[in-house]
Design a protein around this nucleic acid. Structure first.
Lengths: 354, 354
DNA sequence: GCAAGCAATGAAAGCGCTTTCATCAAGCGC
DNA sequence: GCGCTTGATGAAAGCGCTTTCATTGCTTGC
């Protein structure tokens, strides 16, 4: 910075001002400084800047996965809001590991982010305490918490799992299987929702559920379906914890000559892009990933730019929508979308699922 | 830090040493300090630490996409090497935009990373100059450069595209279509390889190529195939610039009652996980994503931990492998893998594709 | 025409650490 | 016992910025 100052014939402090608060500096100096910056290819040391100003312009984001198309949309939305505001997003992928998450949070706090966005509401006690004591806005996303650390936007996965199952039941299916992969907490809740529905509907799920401890992939969808079929011979319908498994199950049906949806209906979860492109197109429970990211980022921006004024609404349930497509049989309602919902304790939400 | 020092009854400098160089401090003090750190939930300010020591422990990684399963493996590999070494990986997704990349590089350099890993070899002049002048190790990955900025690990996409096309030709196909999405430079090279093969084989590609400016997704595979079929009526084989398009094309074939591989052969690119799980399984050109990430990270680690000693080998061609599966017809060779290669100017590489 | 006010710039202090350098006590050989 | 080394600790300086606070030269209003 001193070099730039010398070249522009001003003091270093003026350079700092020209860069940070251009309105405090005369037009002419501003130009001289900018020229010098150009010539010398000067890049301010962000670390020193952050240290001196105690504004790091960093927001930390923890995601449990990147393979998953889900988090790409979500991250993209966050960046779209934060980057234009000059805020750098620090992403850490903790691969569905609570202990990696704990470490990641600790490491991130060492960078003194101005806010943190974490996925899910199932942080360990230590993670929670770290976040709570960080003294910065925290947003938990993707799931709804009874007692959020700070702000919270998400949806109720138990209800969503319940609704998907009930949807298949209403279509006339009784032997409804559930396939699930590595048990991230939200997938487990969807499973719980399935189980709740089966119980309430008086159906046994005996032999109809298959799960794996490994992270999900398409192939696993086939494997898990095969497992269920080995148990129970046949099924009417399949609800999977995500779209990859649904796709795998769909292929397994092709392989076995089982017609979808005539013999078996399939419902996935997340409504990734490819769901509309399969044969038949996959019915899936659609979640508003981008909206969760956008909301989280905007809430944070409002707080850190708006003198700590907090948004009036600290909790949002974005709900879900069952996108009905060919894999679950002919739509029997007029619309493409059926069965949406927000969790009851958030019915005050100003934003119903659209 | 002062608080910790007070609580432990030592000077701040001792705390710093206990944390940074535990071997320089007596056992007893070390314990006292660690206890105090625990009690106070002290997290060192990484910014101050980096500023004072001029070791940021940061490595910057630029990726053009996250949707893509490709970059997840690659990033995971990089983190697996760097995180255990106490290095934080700063990731920026530049969404296939050169201008976003330029900005991202500039921003990252403000954090004074100890090394940078960038995807591809097609940086703008300004990006190149920024990287060159950063004074830290740079690795370009995924592609091979004639004149790399610094280190380089990748593969020759022209040759890979050529080989995939030639492979289909050798299977007896003549009407070989090529589907390609948003033109990232590597996809364009694969296209160029396809074109080169067609030219050399004396085949016309008239009407057989369809592309889109949008980022690829599964649905687009179907759309592009439809476009080609509208042009030319029928095709023998399809080579796509990635697996998403291959999957989409496969579904489009199902939809149209075209048998794969009897009527049409399909070859994708990248060999993502799902290729083995489709019906029929997709033949795809497999690339060593994890290995590229691992190599880049290890090369960097060696330099920044090993007193700047540079690895003997600065350029590596990892080649590719055509994973032959059902979608391209019966394997006519004994092995699952055929046609591999490294680019000729790197034939000296000590590591042939395995 | 002069004090008050203001805009533009610079000097100095300090953000929270690490690192060099100095200090001090203990251990050692002769 | 004296000078030496050695290991452990502390004091001070400084990393590259930003932010108060002080200074300077001007414009104002009456």
């Amino acid at each position: 910075m001193t070099d730039v100052a010398n070249r522009a014939g001003v003091s270093p402090v003026t350079v700092s001002r020209a860069l940070r608060h251009p309105e405090m500096v005369s037009e002419e100096l501003l130009k001289r400084v900018n020229d010098a910056v150009q010539k010398l290819n000067y890049i301010p040391n962000h670390l020193a800047s952050a240290l001196a100003s105690t504004r790091t312009q960093i927001v930390g984001v923890i995601v449990p996965s990147l393979t998953n198309g889900v988090f790409d949309d979500y991250l993209g939305a966050i960046q779209d809001v934060l980057n234009p505001a000059g805020i750098q997003v620090l992403v850490t992928n903790v691969r569905y590991s609570e202990i990696e998450e704990e470490k990641a949070i600790q490491t991130m706090l060492g960078y003194h982010p101005e806010a943190m966005i974490v996925t899910g509401v199932d942080q360990t006690e230590r993670s929670t305490s770290l976040l709570r004591n960080a003294g910065v806005p925290i947003v938990q996303t993707m799931d709804v918490a009874g007692a959020p650390i700070d702000m919270n936007i998400g949806l109720d996965h138990i209800m969503a799992g319940y609704a998907a199952t009930k949807y298949l039941y209403d279509l006339g299916h009784r032997l409804i299987a559930h396939l699930t992969a590595r048990g991230d907490p939200r997938a487990r809740r969807r499973h719980a929702g399935y189980q709740k529905a089966m119980d309430e509907l008086g159906l046994s799920s005996q032999g109809l559920v298959a799960g794996s401890a490994r992270p999900s992939d398409v192939e696993m969808g086939g494997t898990l379906l095969s497992e269920v079929l080995a148990n129970v011979g046949r099924v009417d319908a399949i609800f999977t914890c995500n779209d990859d498994l649904a796709l795998g199950a769909l292929f397994e049906c092709h392989r076995r000559g089982i017609s979808v949806p005539e013999d078996v209906a399939i419902v996935g979860f997340n409504d990734l892009d490819f769901c509309g492109a399969t044969v038949p197109p996959l019915t899936s429970v659609s979640t508003e990933r981008r909206r969760m990211g956008t909301w989280a980022a905007e809430a944070i921006l409002e707080i850190i730019r708006g003198n700590g004024r907090r948004p009036k609404q600290m909790r949002v349930d974005v709900g879900w929508v069952i996108k009905e497509r060919g894999s679950s049989g002919k739509p029997r309602r007029r619309a493409d979308q059926v069965s949406t919902g927000v969790s009851p304790d958030m019915a005050h939400s100003d934003h119903e699922p659209s």
